[in-house]
Design a protein around this nucleic acid. Structure first.
Lengths: 320, 320
DNA sequence: CTGAAAGCGCTTACAG
DNA sequence: CTGAAAGCGCTTACAG
């Protein structure tokens, strides 16, 4: 048994013995049981990835990047979609803890989470991706969008816009709050006050983007430029613009946080703030094995988002 | 110990005993170890999902649907991207087998696979999704695209097209072969012969779609209508059309297999063959627990794909 | 209800 | 190199 274990687990075994073991296991159809191995080793070589929704292209790319990096290091990836629901998130976390995953990459639904403190207490390494929870001791991997959003606001104001609207994410989320604040602050700093009716809150999902755009288009005095705080809400907003037959950028300028492969195929191509997603996912998945294998606590990584100017913004009133 | 096990595993325990167990485990921070449980029970409550790439919107939706259905039934999902590489696929399968997953949903890279026979031999339930391997005894969940592709060809020929081109997937894959054959057969049946230069092979990935379109546009005599056999190649092809400044549908009509949320946002909106993805994913994830829990071998499910006519096809020569 | 015991399949020192 | 043994944390019959 010891020799068999060494052949499969990687230890010093003579060539002859190895060959005989391999031959016998081929004959018997033997396959090492990773469950038993995990129990004995107290390590499952499995990582958990907890995200709002894989259907969001940002998280799709994150999932792919994390899975790649995990596999390269000999880890499997268990996937969970929370739909921004803290209850669902808590249940996933509990399952991952019971399954004794070696580490968790999470983009938490809320800025506060008792369940994540629980994870910390269980001694399971955590890396926050995109969003984080204050007070939980774990590295964060994210893109800072403030500079790029500020730049976008400067660009819009420079084009002559004074009625700027934002389709914001939930302000209690890190990213939602950050994008909203930098948008408002950027406008204010340039002498433009964004009135309350021009701040519409969504939940980062598509339907809420459509609903928000509908609301903005129904206003007595429409905004001349609209910024959607993530890709899904942008999709919904664009659909609504399309449905309402509102021309972009002649009647209203439009920009989005998050870039998506097909933005540049639209007429006009959509101006967007792009996050370095692959780098983000890679950084997260690189950190976890480091923590798992006890090589210390990696530093947080904050990358910069970039404004990508395309054709969806123009001076206001250009159409009329 | 027996009582604790019953409290967490679900057995008859008196209210008083249950409360004391719960109180003690709260105090001690006890959490059941699913690894040990899996070893003892010979069931991991984990399913594997092996797909070419989550970044393909079709498989993104599949992953989401399978994950939902798995979770509802108390299973976790391990994700693997093969990139259409049989070697990578084989390695994933081996890992899943060693980890003793209770079942595997797979969209195999090739129509032949010794590794999948291996999985059958290991006694792990398998469900094929979208694509399958002949000779492996397992239910298949897929959409039959033949009728819809034939309908599309009829529509194009009806518009007056005689130079039909296809950007095909690998003909040795089930879906690639099926779409190519129904395209060619549909044309022939209508008296249109598709010449060899108008059949360009890609690998279902974006770059190959762009490359194929570049080739078609470089032809002495261009096609008047192009059909891309999946969404990713369609994306690449559309980008190439855009780059080359070719107007759709005036200069060339275009249609895609697979529908994508943003197709209808394009100018013109893209005509496509839509698969019932959610139903596909749900069916697959419903079957696996049935097989795992020994409730027999479910029947294969074949749903119909539907042609969605939008604005990207018009009579040939409409632009000149 | 509770305790003792066997066994799931490994890994890892320890003898021989 | 190989065999015997302990132990990872459960579940499940079996006594008491």
């Amino acid at each position: 048994m010891a020799t068999v274990s060494r052949v499969f687990g990687g230890g010093g075994v003579s060539a002859g013995a190895r060959e005989r073991v391999l031959e016998a296991s081929r004959r018997l159809g033997y396959r090492p049981n990773a469950v038993a191995r995990a129990l004995r080793m107290e390590a499952t070589r499995t990582l958990g990835l907890v995200i709002p929704n894989v259907m969001n292209p940002f998280f799709t790319a994150v999932a792919r990047a994390v899975e790649d990096a995990a596999r390269e290091r000999g880890y499997s990836l268990v996937l969970g979609n929370t739909d921004e629901d803290p209850e669902k998130e808590a249940r996933y976390l509990e399952v991952l803890l019971e399954k004794r995953v070696d580490g968790i990459v999470i983009s938490p639904a809320r800025a506060a989470s008792p369940h994540l403190e629980e994870v910390g207490r269980a001694g399971v390494p955590v890396v926050f991706l995109d969003r984080y929870v204050e007070g939980v001791e774990a590295p964060v991997v994210r893109a800072d969008g403030r500079r790029a959003v500020d730049e976008l606001v400067g660009y819009l104001v420079g084009l002559g816009h004074r009625r700027l609207a934002i389709i914001s994410g939930p302000p209690e989320t890190v990213t939602g709050g950050e994008r909203l604040e930098s948008f408002l602050a950027g406008a204010r700093r340039r002498g433009v006050e964004v009135s309350a009716e021009l701040v519409v809150y969504g939940d980062f999902r598509r339907e809420s983007g459509a609903r928000a755009m509908r609301r903005l288009l129904g206003l007595e005095e429409r905004p001349t430029a609209v910024f959607a705080a993530n890709n899904l809400m942008a999709l919904g907003a664009l659909e609504e613009l399309d449905r309402a037959g509102v021309r972009v950028p002649e009647e209203v300028s439009f920009a989005s946080f998050d870039d998506v492969s097909w933005f540049r195929l639209l007429r006009p191509p959509v101006t967007a703030v792009a996050q370095p997603i692959r780098e983000l996912g890679e950084a997260a998945a690189r950190m976890l094995p480091e923590m798992v294998e006890g090589r210390g606590r990696p530093e947080s990584v904050v990358l910069e988002a970039e404004l990508v100017v395309r054709g969806s913004c123009a001076p206001p009133g250009g159409g009329g």
